[in-house]
């Protein structure tokens, strides 16, 4: 969590503006409205990282392909974590791969989201027992926002997951929380 410095010298212009508005009578409503607009924009342009691990990546490709066309929801894959808002962990993650996934997640700029696609990424799935190399759930290394069940989930299920993530983003109160922290 980024904390606002006391003198406000290093704040982004929008945050300075928000702080000014917040001091005005009735400014809280304005801040909430701005927040809603920001969330709306954010939720409608989720850019995932082009990152597939195993079988679920095929369904992810199909979801971005011709029939299902995730582009309709503003989901446009990016090839580098620096430009991505979302990482879809599609498939089983091995222990050898775990630090790599963690580093990719760390390289993504805030705000960032994680969808765990398929049972393998969620809990190890069919690779839970008698197995020595698969991580039992990606949430042991990175925090997950939406779990999509299935083995592999159908493209529709992934779209549902993205829509759920949009709902979640729409309800976020980042600015308000930041202001409260600055005020406290």
């Amino acid at each position: 969590m980024v904390r606002v410095p006391a003198d406000g010298s290093r704040e982004a212009p929008i945050e300075q503006l928000v702080e000014v508005l917040h001091r005005l009578p009735g400014g809280q409503i304005l801040v909430t409205s701005i927040e809603n607009v920001l969330n709306w924009a954010r939720a409608r342009s989720i850019w995932p990282l082009t990152f597939g691990l195993a079988c679920c990546a095929m369904e992810m490709m199909q979801a971005m392909g011709t029939r299902f066309d995730l582009d309709r929801f503003g989901v446009i894959p990016r090839a580098t974590p620096r430009q991505a808002d979302l990482i879809i962990v599609a498939g089983r993650c091995t222990i050898k791969m775990a630090p790599v996934v963690r580093r990719l997640w760390e390289q993504m700029p805030e705000p960032k989201y994680v969808i765990s696609m398929g049972s393998c990424a969620t809990c190890g799935g069919p690779f839970y027992y008698d197995n020595y190399s698969i991580l039992k759930g990606i949430d042991t290394v990175i925090p997950v926002d939406v779990y999509v069940p299935g083995c592999p989930p159908r493209p529709e299920a992934l779209i549902e997951g993205v829509l759920k993530l949009q709902e979640k983003i729409q309800r976020e109160r980042r600015l308000t929380r930041r202001l409260q922290e600055a005020g406290a």
């Binding site: 222990i95 775990a98 630090p99 963690r102 991580l135 042991t140 290394v141 990175i142 925090p143």
Partner: peptide, 8 residues
């Protein structure tokens, strides 16, 4: 891995 899980 244990350390990574602890950080998480």
């Amino acid at each position: 891995l244990v350390e990574l899980a602890r950080v998480r």
